[in-house]
């Protein structure tokens, strides 16, 4: 087998990106951002509340963290469900103990299935982000646009209705998208989305339905990535957050406001043997006077102002 004769044609080989979704821009060249009260580092904690269905369809791929065993894979189903029953309540306590804010990214099906939990989230005043319908409802290249449009609309409408919140933020399951996802989000009233990990700061993302703000929610610093994908120890997780925090504080002192974004999964860090690590991370972060514990919508507002 050999490559075809067009293999050395480069139709997008020109200034900027090989697409027109956003402008090529180096972070170091942009004007510095000032956070409120002269803080250097915005700390954005996001907690992901996820539902992994037992009858996973794997369309078009098995969602990371999902079922891996023959049906019914009760071990993974229940261990993920643990986060919504037990882990999240440990998270709430830890947040309160250290005076931290957090957004909550929720599969719409979590809100539907667990009204007690939804009400708790609303009462506590968390900003709710839509995390798609459920973890196996993937958005992907090649998905028929009518199908995806219906999925986006249903996920958002139901979550808005159930929560009473405007829901302006979005994280796709597995942070996966089709070419149509951004414009469908914009058409359905989403202001910011968090799937693209190509920046440490917000930037403007273009769609045919208007602009979105791309918010930087690091995958590399996620508990799931570090503990489950990389199989690093809990203490290494803590070290990595501390090193990132110190580095970003230092960078912010000469280059303007930065964001430390931590995406957390209560089915992982909410385990009894791990929750103390999260508390130690919160303790470290709360000891830094230059940190602003912020909600994503607040960060978006400063970015746009």
């Amino acid at each position: 087998m050999s490559t075809n004769k067009n293999y050395l044609k480069y139709p997008h080989r020109s200034l900027g990106m090989d697409h027109s979704l956003y402008k090529w821009s180096m972070l170091d060249d942009r004007p510095p951002i000032q956070w409120p009260n002269g803080k250097k580092l915005a700390l954005w904690i996001n907690i992901s509340l996820q539902f992994f269905p037992l009858n996973q369809q794997n369309k078009p791929f098995p969602v990371p963290g999902g079922m891996t065993m023959p049906y019914p894979d009760l071990r993974h189903y229940t261990l993920r469900d643990y986060g919504n029953r037990i882990g999240i309540y440990r998270f709430f306590d830890a947040l309160d103990q250290y005076g931290m804010q957090s957004s909550i990214a929720m599969n719409t099906l979590v809100a539907k299935r667990y009204p007690y939990l939804l009400n708790k989230v609303i009462e506590r005043g968390h900003e709710i982000i839509c995390h798609g319908d459920h973890m196996d409802a993937l958005h992907y290249g090649g998905q028929p646009i009518e199908e995806e449009a219906a999925l986006v609309q249903k996920s958002l409408n139901e979550l808005r209705q159930l929560s009473g919140q405007p829901v302006k933020g979005w994280i796709s399951p597995a942070k996966n998208e089709s070419h149509n996802t951004p414009k469908l989000l914009a058409a359905n009233g989403i202001e910011y989305f968090c799937d693209w990990v190509n920046d440490d700061m917000p930037y403007e993302f273009y769609t045919d339905e208007g602009a979105l703000t791309a918010m930087p929610l690091s995958t590399e610093l996620e508990d799931k990535f570090i503990l489950m994908n990389n199989l690093h120890s809990e203490s290494s997780y803590k070290d990595q957050i501390i090193d990132a925090c110190d580095f970003l504080l230092e960078e912010a002192s000469t280059k303007g406001g930065r964001i430390l974004a931590l995406n957390l999964h209560p089915w992982l860090l909410g385990q009894p043997h791990r929750i103390h690590i999260l508390e130690q991370v919160f303790e470290y972060l709360s000891s830094k006077k230059d940190i602003w514990s912020a909600n994503p919508m607040e960060i978006v507002r400063v970015f746009k102002s």
Binding site: P60, F61, Y140, A174, K175, E177, S178, W196, T219
Partner: peptide
């Protein structure tokens, strides 16, 4: 890429 295009991650 491991996912269908666009492989955002």
């Amino acid at each position: 890429w491991p996912q269908p295009i666009p492989a955002i991650p």
